[in-house]
């Protein structure tokens, strides 16, 4: 029962909180640049306004273009409901597998890439091409990090990995964890299109990856896409926090108080990570597209080291 309540609460927190997270990150960035910024609530205002505007179907596009935002947001929602952010007792145990989560996130990206291609504009195709290239290069790192994390537990089920970490917090401070954490951190940045991989606030089409795919979307479609991007960021940051700093997550048999506590802790952890990410971005410039593979190859090496460490240090 707590599992179900926790999962529902978690989805609500992710859904409501992700625009706030994006707003917070923009605010922090603005403050560090000496500006005031638009306030944490601004992202929600943007979404509300987008929902009131009309959606547009450009000539020559079809069902793929229309369905892409739904699939993207749908995968984000499903992922938000299965990852153990608040409770490890997900009612959808059969989906709460790290491989499945990674694949679902990839499915969302693929949907958006196809939506970009369906417009037939040069920018749509360019964004799609870049997105799937990055996706292909990110995948090995994700799966190897999953591998490294699963060795100690003997399972890739997220609930079990996090439960084990909750019960044995000191194991988190091991070379395996650290290496995997760095690798997954890089992956998170790449997957969510943050600096130095992609610049979420760029206005130059030629430097875009994510933005280039969504240039044709308007109104509610665009609202879904932006909201889904926010949810992916929230979930990935929450997951990172859950895997490497699992304190506070409600495990089996926890009462309602624990769930509420877990919610508070989750919000705190994600806010801290988001703030850190936003602050870090101020110090960096976006990498050239063809330098990104080097970054990802580096993270792949770290993940490989993590797996090796998990065997030889075990």
């Amino acid at each position: 029962m707590t599992g179900l309540v926790g999962a529902v609460a978690q989805v609500v927190v992710v859904a409501v909180g992700s625009p706030l997270l994006v707003g917070l990150m923009r605010k922090i960035r603005a403050r560090l640049e000496g500006r005031v910024g638009a306030g944490v609530l601004q992202t929600w205002r943007d979404l509300r306004k987008l929902c009131r505007k009309e959606a547009i179907s450009p000539h020559g596009t079809g069902w793929v273009f229309r369905m892409a935002p739904l699939v993207l947001a749908g995968t984000a929602l499903v992922v938000a409901s299965v990852v153990p952010l608040v409770t490890t007792q997900s009612p959808m145990d059969g989906v709460a597998d790290l491989f499945a989560v990674a694949a679902l996130l990839a499915l969302g990206s693929v949907a958006l890439a196809l939506g970009g291609l369906d417009t037939g504009t040069a920018f749509g195709g360019m964004g799609a091409s870049r997105e799937v290239t990055l996706l292909a290069l990110v995948e090995p790192t994700i799966l190897l990090s999953v591998f490294a994390l699963s060795v100690r537990v003997g399972s890739t089920n997220l609930g079990e990995i996090v439960t084990a970490a909750v019960h044995d917090p000191m194991a988190v401070i091991s070379p395996v964890s650290l290496l995997a954490a760095v690798a997954l951190g890089v992956v998170t940045i790449a997957e969510t299109g943050r600096i130095p991989v992609d610049n979420p606030s760029t206005h130059l089409e030629l430097t875009m990856i994510h933005e280039a795919m969504v240039l044709e979307y308007a109104g509610p479609d665009l609202a879904l896409i932006e909201w889904a991007s926010g949810m992916r960021l929230f979930v990935l940051l929450g997951l990172l926090a859950g895997l490497f700093a699992p304190w506070g997550i409600a495990t089996a048999g926890a009462g309602p108080v624990a769930v509420v506590l877990a919610l508070v802790v989750l919000v705190f952890k994600v806010a801290v990570l988001g703030a850190g990410l936003a602050a870090g971005e101020v110090f960096m410039a976006k990498l050239r597209l063809f330098r990104i593979p080097e970054l990802l190859a580096g993270s792949f090496m770290l993940a490989l080291l993590a797996v090796a460490a998990s065997y030889f240090l075990a």
């Binding site: 009131r52 009309e54 959606a55 547009i56 450009p58 000539h59 417009t119 037939g120 504009t121 879904l224």
Partner: peptide, 15 residues
């Protein structure tokens, strides 16, 4: 989305 949307979808030229 259907519930909150106020306007119908409109076809338009490609940008």
């Amino acid at each position: 989305v259907r519930l909150v949307a106020r306007r119908a979808r409109r076809p338009a030229r490609l940008w």
